Amino acid sequence: MSLKELSQRLGLSQTTVSRALNGYPEVSERTRQRVMQLAREMNYRPNPSAKSLATGRTEHIGIVLPIEKNLFVEPLFGEYLAGVAQFLAEADMDITMIPTPFSQELAVYDQLAMSGRVDGLLVSSPAVQDARVTSLVGSNLPFVVHGRTHCDQAYSYCDIDNQGAFASATRLLIELGHQHIGLINGDHSLNYAHDRFLGYKSTLEQYNITYDPSLCVQGEITEESGFNAAAQLLMHRPRPSAFLISNMIFVLGAMRALRQHGLEPGYDVAIIVHDDHLPYLQADKFDPPLTTTSSSIRKAGYEITKMLHHEIELGHTASAKQQKLMEVDLVIRGSTRIRRN
């Protein structure tokens, strides 16, 4: 069915029907509901090109993918992207992936801000100081950051309280009697990892425990990195009695290292790990079940896309930036017990 045929059945002009379908505020709610109901009944689908001409929008959001990071094989990114896709399906929008060499990344963001190729951008894995955000705040292109960065100007973000979560986890371990706590973390140049480090370090200091940098190991998010980090920490003297671990990928390697050293996770070395709710790595199914700081990265992907859609809808009328901090739960299970002397 065409727009013309739909208009004739409704007894309305094509302009009115088009505006009702595209959510223009000058169309009354009663008329809009009438148009939408018949469109659903007749299985009407607007022509994307015509819709773009009518609204001045592409109905695409963009994600820039640095080629070197190979994000499509990274489990956390895949789960995040599932949340993004879920909201886009509900909003009848599409996504444009823009692969680019890291050396050209900033230029690509500048081009996207000027070209009108996408209606808005999602920015992931911000660094402590992130030139992408600094560049985008000076443009008119809507964007939302998954995480936070240090920036003098306001910008929209969706994040979790990484510092507070790792402070709570460190506090629990200390109160269980642990003094030597190893941290297995992501790259501290990334803001999420830096915040987790700050939560760990500041809590040690609150309990008058001297911070030992040799008990902190950074690495790429792989099982092998988790194994190597745990093996390195087990060589430390005195040996750590607890590990605080930044993700479920690391914990696979860390537990393998413990067992190769004849140690039992949760008994000889306590473990707390951050759980992003990867469906095939469920913390309560491990042996022992893992104590976690817990927050769904899929839900974060959904929420950040919803926020971006809101900013796109408001267009240039948007004033205050959206800044959302999602909850992190501390879930206590069998991998943390009172330390044995």
Score class of each variant (00 low, 15 high):
residue 64 V to R: 00
residue 46 P to V: 03
residue 31 T to K: 06
residue 27 V to F: 02
residue 32 R to V: 05
residue 73 V to H: 13
residue 31 T to A: 03
residue 30 R to V: 13
residue 59 E to N: 14
residue 60 H to W: 03
residue 55 T to P: 08
residue 25 P to V: 03
residue 33 Q to D: 13
residue 34 R to I: 09
residue 65 L to E: 00
residue 44 Y to R: 03
residue 65 L to C: 04
residue 59 E to W: 13
residue 54 A to W: 08
residue 31 T to C: 05
residue 59 E to A: 15
residue 69 K to P: 10
residue 74 E to I: 12
residue 45 R to I: 14
residue 32 R to L: 07
residue 52 S to F: 05
residue 46 P to S: 13
residue 43 N to H: 12
residue 51 K to A: 14
residue 56 G to E: 04
residue 46 P to G: 09
residue 34 R to D: 06
residue 38 L to K: 07
residue 39 A to G: 11
residue 72 F to E: 11
residue 28 S to E: 01
residue 87 F to K: 08
residue 59 E to M: 15
residue 25 P to H: 02
residue 64 V to M: 00
residue 78 G to E: 01
residue 70 N to L: 14
residue 70 N to I: 12
residue 56 G to S: 10
residue 58 T to L: 05
residue 30 R to F: 10
residue 85 A to C: 09
residue 79 E to C: 05
residue 65 L to V: 07
residue 43 N to C: 10
residue 43 N to D: 12
residue 80 Y to V: 05
residue 67 I to P: 08
residue 57 R to H: 13
residue 61 I to P: 01
residue 79 E to R: 08
residue 63 I to V: 09
residue 43 N to G: 09
residue 26 E to C: 01
residue 52 S to M: 12
residue 46 P to Y: 06
residue 44 Y to S: 01
residue 71 L to K: 15
residue 43 N to S: 12
residue 61 I to N: 01
residue 86 Q to E: 12
residue 28 S to L: 02
residue 26 E to N: 09
residue 33 Q to I: 08
residue 30 R to W: 06
residue 48 P to G: 04
residue 84 V to L: 05
residue 41 E to G: 04
residue 28 S to F: 04
residue 56 G to M: 06
residue 28 S to H: 02
residue 66 P to Q: 02
residue 47 N to D: 13
residue 54 A to C: 10
residue 63 I to W: 00
residue 29 E to H: 10
residue 47 N to M: 10
residue 26 E to S: 10
residue 55 T to D: 08
residue 68 E to N: 13
residue 28 S to V: 01
residue 25 P to T: 06
residue 86 Q to N: 09
residue 33 Q to S: 12
residue 71 L to W: 14
residue 42 M to R: 12
residue 39 A to Y: 07
residue 31 T to W: 03
residue 86 Q to I: 07
residue 45 R to M: 12
residue 66 P to M: 01
residue 40 R to L: 12
residue 79 E to I: 06
residue 74 E to F: 11
residue 80 Y to E: 04
residue 68 E to Q: 12
residue 33 Q to R: 13
residue 45 R to H: 14
residue 34 R to M: 10
residue 42 M to P: 03
residue 44 Y to K: 02
residue 65 L to K: 00
residue 64 V to C: 00
residue 44 Y to L: 02
residue 68 E to T: 14
residue 58 T to I: 08
residue 62 G to V: 01
residue 49 S to E: 15
residue 76 L to C: 02
residue 75 P to W: 07
residue 32 R to S: 04
residue 41 E to I: 05
